[in-house]
Design a protein around this nucleic acid. Structure first.
Lengths: 354, 354
DNA sequence: CTGAAAGCGCTTACAG
DNA sequence: CTGAAAGCGCTTACAG
């Protein structure tokens, strides 16, 4: 079937044809300095003519690098993982690396074995972890024991020595809250995310900070504990909207829950945004597909993944002055039609309230 | 940083400790027959004690297999690719393989170089292609020239010698159409998918077959050419619902477009499903998140990916009697609330019309 | 600026 | 049932 598989040219073929040693071919291919320009061109010409491509397994076995980056994820959101994957895969290709993807369960009893097997077999030059795996101590332990450089995307509390990439969840949540406040809303419901994810707490903090800055009190009765799923958004909506002094706006910690709120509101016959404003977080694909489209925050997912690969491939790319091994990427508030000024009330800037 | 990296045990360490040759260790690890049970257990004990894991690059360089499966995709739908990825990654791990994912642009001018580079560097034991890449002649050419076994997921017309996995788009579309017909709908609008994707034509054929089987004519004015995107669903809805004898139901070739129809209908003030029934295709995550939830067809995405890996890893797994290299996986009609019986008309089974 | 030698850690024939 | 030797195709020191 693959009769030509055996005829693939090796570095020896190239060296012979170019009249140089294999070491020189290696130098040219790895862009090492100190090769006569004429020699370089000659080698490159033969490489092109023979369509020579170095074999990764040989490079990996002989050298110190595997040219492999591992990405570990445990599903939750297809949109999030998909974005990370695309950003990472593209950057890997640009850098001459390849992305090996493994899906592992966060609660699997043999999770350490799974991770260890992957790392020991592949010897990746680096690993990228997404939530909630990036906060899993067992996984982190295995990786650190193996000496594999690791980048955490949007982690919670973590060893400050580790490389991280994230966005500013607190500030983003503040901005969303401020938007609602500026639209005249005072009774704003909040739906928290899953307890075991770091972003949940950060977004809640942002909400509280913005409320307090505007001189508004956070009514505990208007805070619901969700878990980032659509159904928990529905449940949260029923809880919040069933109150005596019900909120005129609801800020859900992610889009899936906001969609649940939207669905519940429509079933309850509430006009959105006329009678209820709704805001989410993530800017998931569905957020712009529903009606009315959701006001939300765009997470720089693909960019975070690109940066993660950069940190692994070009160690110099890691960190900035503030947090040595950490990078914080900019987000963007995305106002859409699910939020509007409070019906029949004047627009009241928050500054005037102090 | 990784001081212990150099101390990773090799097959030689295991052989020495177990008092056997490296060949015997290799036999045990590869489950080759003909090893004394006692020897086998002794080797396994040492392997466990030393936490020995064979290095993939060495196995790959020395042997005929790389234990790598490549997955090539060009985004379109995050949900589809995400499902394929998960199914493939899980099955790979079970089989001791690893999944290398590459995202390439279907229209990139250097697409052949990109694919060739990946295949030549990795020497994967097999490749999996998703639409639209599985119908890209240039990509298929490079892979066939390299002798890399390839499985196409949901391809269009293809070389019958190639391995394929798909669902029955024609039949599934027939079922959706029948459901609408059984609900009493006669004027049914249809929105076609992207011209360059094979599934578009297949689903349209299914629609026509069901209409004809029920003795209903397909009104060309009620067929709109979409492109699988949300906006084209909105445009299709405006086109179809603006007609004199407008349809009482719309069947969109995928969920994204169906969501567009839903959005447009709600803006036009039409009750769904009271005044308009809507059906989609895919059972994307958003389909069950909107209100009303969408009637659709569940594609067996993860299963298709698992089977694809199986065909590559266990050659015997490929094909069934009907189509030698092809496997057709079962789908499932998912009736939800976006479709309902035609208002104020009796339920009329299609059989009675003939 | 260039090269000869050794070696990475396994599997593949081949022997016994 | 088991093993000694060769070799996969590169990179790494080390020389010159």
């Amino acid at each position: 079937m693959s009769s030509r598989a055996s005829s693939a040219p090796t570095i020896i073929d190239v060296a012979r044809e170019a009249g140089v040693s294999i070491k020189t071919v290696s130098r040219v291919l790895n862009r090492e300095a100190g090769v006569h320009e004429q020699t370089r061109e000659q080698v490159l010409a033969v490489v092109a003519q023979l369509k020579y491509r170095p074999k990764l397994s040989a490079r990996s076995l002989a050298g110190a690098r595997s040219f492999l980056i591992g990405l570990l994820y445990y599903d939750p959101s297809a949109a999030f993982v998909g974005g990370v994957q695309k950003g990472a895969a593209v950057r890997c290709r640009e850098a001459g690396y390849h992305l090996v993807v493994e899906s592992i369960e966060n609660e699997a009893p043999d999770i350490e074995t799974q991770v260890d097997r992957m790392v020991a077999a592949l010897r990746p030059d680096g690993m990228i972890l997404t939530p909630p795996l990036c906060d899993n101590p067992q996984v982190l332990k295995v990786l650190s024991d193996s000496g594999t450089p690791t980048v955490l995307i949007s982690p919670g509390d973590h060893d400050p020595a580790l490389l991280t990439v994230r966005m500013d969840d607190v500030h983003a949540a503040q901005e969303v809250t401020q938007l609602l406040i500026e639209l005249g809303h005072e009774r704003i419901g909040f739906i928290r995310g899953a307890r075991d994810q770091a972003a949940s707490e950060l977004r809640y903090q942002g909400f509280k900070l913005a409320m307090e800055a505007a001189g508004l009190s956070v009514d505990e009765a208007l805070v619901y504990q969700g878990d980032f799923t659509f159904p928990s958004g529905v449940a949260g909506a029923h809880h919040l909207l069933g109150q005596k002094g019900r909120p005129t706006a609801v800020f859900a910690s992610n889009d899936d829950m906001a969609l649940g709120v939207l669905s519940a509101a429509q079933r309850l016959g509430l006009q959105v945004p006329g009678e209820l404003s709704i805001a989410g977080f993530d800017d998931s694909p569905a957020a712009s597909l529903v009606w009315p489209p959701l006001t939300t925050v765009r997470q720089p997912i693909e960019e975070m993944a690109r940066v993660a690969v950069d940190m692994l491939v070009t160690p110099a790319a890691g960190g900035d002055e503030a947090t040595p091994g950490g990078r914080v990427l900019p987000h963007r508030l995305v106002p859409r039609d699910s939020t509007a000024a409070l019906a029949s009330r004047a627009h009241r800037p928050t500054a005037a309230r102090r």
